[in-house]
């Protein structure tokens, strides 16, 4: 890879394009497009490595743009931004092959976290579409998190191996509280990495937290340890398993 990575930001709000350029401009080549049509042209002409796009765009939906772009270049790393009201759509977007989504309004750090992981994904040439080495019986939210239904009706949740590869050394975890209610597409866990970023991970399912993997508090890097069964983040009692599983990718 020579030179800077190129990122295309698509949003109908100028202020968001400007702030993206300001925040990301120092490390990346930032291209911007105000609508789906301009975005398509730039995609074809400039072949960016990363795309950040709003789900709701004038012209065509971000989802459509996502489908078209991925068809053209399956290796493209796409981050979708979205208002809260379309969290469900965002979950669907992850199923369609988006790398991450950022609920608006987001902070500078949240944007940096997502973009940092996207850059790693590009550098590692993580192919998002292909099935990962996930275990049978696992359900994935995009490439980010997994859910594994257990026999007793509870579900284990964790972060995928692919996602972990995009992270620097993990130095801390912010686990959910026992008894808390998680929502599909809501926050599952926050991972603090050595580059000073905090990476929020989206929960693949909604439900009540029954237990958390407390071992991670002292040894966050255990999360990567595929050899033992301690990779999980939390065990939940799902609230609507049948309704939410179809939004996930079965491995």
């Amino acid at each position: 890879m020579t030179g800077k990575l190129r990122i295309l930001v698509v949003d109908d709000e100028q202020v968001i394009l400007d702030s993206a350029r300001k925040i990301l401009g120092s490390d990346l080549t930032v291209l911007t497009a105000p609508d789906a049509e301009a975005a398509s042209q730039l995609l074809a002409a400039e072949a960016p490595d990363i795309v950040i796009s709003d789900l709701v765009l004038p012209g065509a939906s971000g989802m459509k743009l996502l489908d078209n772009a991925l068809e053209h270049d399956p290796g493209l790393v796409i981050i979708l931004t979205t208002g809260f009201s379309t969290v469900e759509n965002a979950v669907a977007a992850l199923k369609h092959g988006a790398f991450d989504f950022l609920p608006k309004p987001f902070t500078c750090d949240e944007l940096l976290s997502s973009v940092a992981r996207a850059r790693r994904a590009v550098e590692l040439r993580l192919t998002l579409g292909a099935r990962g080495p996930g275990e049978r019986g696992e359900f994935h939210l995009g490439v980010q998190t997994w859910a594994r239904p257990e026999r007793d009706g509870t579900v284990l949740l964790g972060v995928t191996e692919k996602e972990l590869r995009t992270l620097e050394r993990i130095e801390g975890v912010e686990l959910p509280e026992i008894g808390a209610e998680l929502r599909q597409g809501g926050r599952l866990v926050t991972l603090l990495t050595s580059d000073g970023l905090a990476h929020g991970m989206w929960s693949p399912l909604g439900g009540r937290v029954l237990a958390v993997n407390n071992a991670l508090k002292d040894a966050p890097e255990l999360l990567r340890d595929a050899s033992n069964g301690a990779r999980f983040v939390a065990r939940i009692q799902p609230s609507d398993l049948d309704g939410e599983l179809p939004n996930l990718i079965e491995s």
Partner: peptide
Amino acid sequence: INNPLTGVLTY
């Protein structure tokens, strides 16, 4: 409101 809020928050 999310869009202007995003501008303020990111900046």
